[in-house]
């Protein structure tokens, strides 16, 4: 099959970017989208043109490194699928496909299709952990965890940190990412001691980098891991409770 690609090229963070057209010819429909880009890059190198930079790594949908807005949709047209798991059989022969980087104020462009997502690390550093020094943990079966709680925590924990939620959001908000981590830990008995400080600190850090949530829900529909919007509701509830418990709503110091 043949497809035409309209690809965002940008030399660096401060440079102006533009779309450039490329043709991908004689592509196998069994190829993944990224393998198709590999072939395009091989051709560019053969012609002496600088290849397209794009983030990718595991190519099995788990590391969260790959990104790409494909025809305006984060990770492309197939639901619940990261770009690296998207195959060319999902496109029509002769299609014109627009490929852009994540577009969000919180994710500045590094080059071409590569963006800087380190703001996510800052959110985790603010509280996305349970403080347990190595070696100080109690016997693992000492604290039973109801299976339902463990499963719900696992649902939240399956977030791969790709940033599709932010890219999909008209406000460039990171609520789904942040809520997934907060809820994973807040649902477990081990996460209770730091529950309120974690929630408040992570939400406050998130607000420094990202836009605000207006409950549109684009994030959940773009999520390759199907992280549920419900987690945002749980986070918001814990945030409000955390603010009260830490007596921050009334301007008092905790």
């Amino acid at each position: 099959m043949n497809v035409s690609l309209k690809v965002w090229r940008q030399d660096g963070p401060a440079a102006a970017g533009e779309f450039t057209m490329y043709e991908a010819t004689d592509i196998s429909s069994e190829m993944s989208f990224l393998e198709m880009l590999d072939v395009v890059n091989e051709e560019l190198i053969a012609r002496g043109e600088v290849p397209i930079e794009f983030d990718h790594d595991c190519r099995e949908g788990i590391c969260g490194m790959c990104s790409l807005m494909i025809d305006g949709i984060p990770h492309g047209p197939q639901r619940s699928t990261a770009t690296c798991q998207l195959h060319m059989r999902k496109f029509k022969d002769g299609a014109v496909i627009t490929v852009e980087p994540w577009r969000a104020a919180g994710f500045p462009i590094v080059r071409d299709l590569v963006v800087d997502r380190s703001a996510f690390d800052r959110i985790i550093e603010a509280g996305g952990f349970i403080s347990v020094a190595t070696g100080s943990a109690p016997e693992a079966n000492l604290i039973p965890v109801p299976r339902e709680a463990a499963e719900a925590a696992m649902d939240a924990a399956s977030c791969i940190g790709c940033g599709a939620c932010v890219a999909a959001c008209p406000n460039g908000a990171a609520q789904l990412f942040t809520a997934a981590k907060i809820t994973q830990l807040n649902l477990l008995p081990q996460g209770q001691p730091e529950r309120w400080s974690r929630t408040v600190n992570m939400v406050d850090t998130m607000e420094e980098y990202f836009g605000s949530c207006t409950n549109i829900g684009e994030c959940a529909s773009a999520c390759p891991q199907d992280i549920s919007l419900d987690f945002i509701a749980l986070m918001n509830r814990d945030y409000a409770r955390g603010m009260v418990r830490q007596r921050r709503l009334t301007g008092q110091r905790s």
Binding site: F129, S136, A140, M154
Partner: peptide, 10 residues
């Protein structure tokens, strides 16, 4: 296993 469980690994 003790360490990871305490860290919240589900």
């Amino acid at each position: 296993i003790d360490q990871c469980t305490a860290q919240g690994v589900p």
